[in-house]
């Protein structure tokens, strides 16, 4: 099959980014990021089972500034993927396909992800203050 001269779609370099396409690829990118994040979840659980020494190592890494930055990224990726995922489930059920609704649900998913991330971190730092 000769594909050499066929037009290719989409032309990413000439299309203006739109909320539909940007959220679509970000949903996929956050999914891949979360796969990497599952390694930390497994490490944390296995270290907790292994004993206080290995657990202290994980906690030390996660409490360092780079660990906190990664956790911030993963928590946002998680809530973004969750909110966009709910949007996908509505589409799967046959709702929300018209363009105004798609735009609205997209911005709602972004706002939801930001809000849930912020609430989680405020909650976590409030608990930290109470614990120490």
């Amino acid at each position: 099959m000769n594909k050499a001269n066929r037009p290719l779609s989409p032309h990413l370099q000439v299309y203006k980014p739109q909320i539909t396409s940007v959220l679509s690829i970000t949903h996929r990118a956050t999914g891949i990021a979360l796969v990497v994040g599952t390694l930390v979840l497994v490490w944390w659980l296995v270290a907790a089972a292994a004993g206080p020494g290995p657990f202290a190592t994980v906690q030390g890494v996660l409490r360092s500034w780079i660990g906190q930055l990664l956790l911030l990224g993963w928590s946002f990726a998680l809530f973004f993927h969750l909110c966009c995922g709910i949007r996908h489930l509505f589409w799967d059920a046959g709702y929300g396909f018209d363009i105004p609704t798609v735009t609205k649900s997209g911005w709602t998913a972004i706002a939801g992800a930001v809000a849930l991330t912020a609430v989680s971190w405020i909650w976590a730092y409030a608990s930290l203050g109470g614990a120490s």
Binding site: W123, A124, L128
Partner: peptide, 10 residues
């Protein structure tokens, strides 16, 4: 996430 947030510092 809620459980982990509540246990931060534990």
């Amino acid at each position: 996430v809620a459980s982990i947030a509540a246990m931060a510092g534990a």
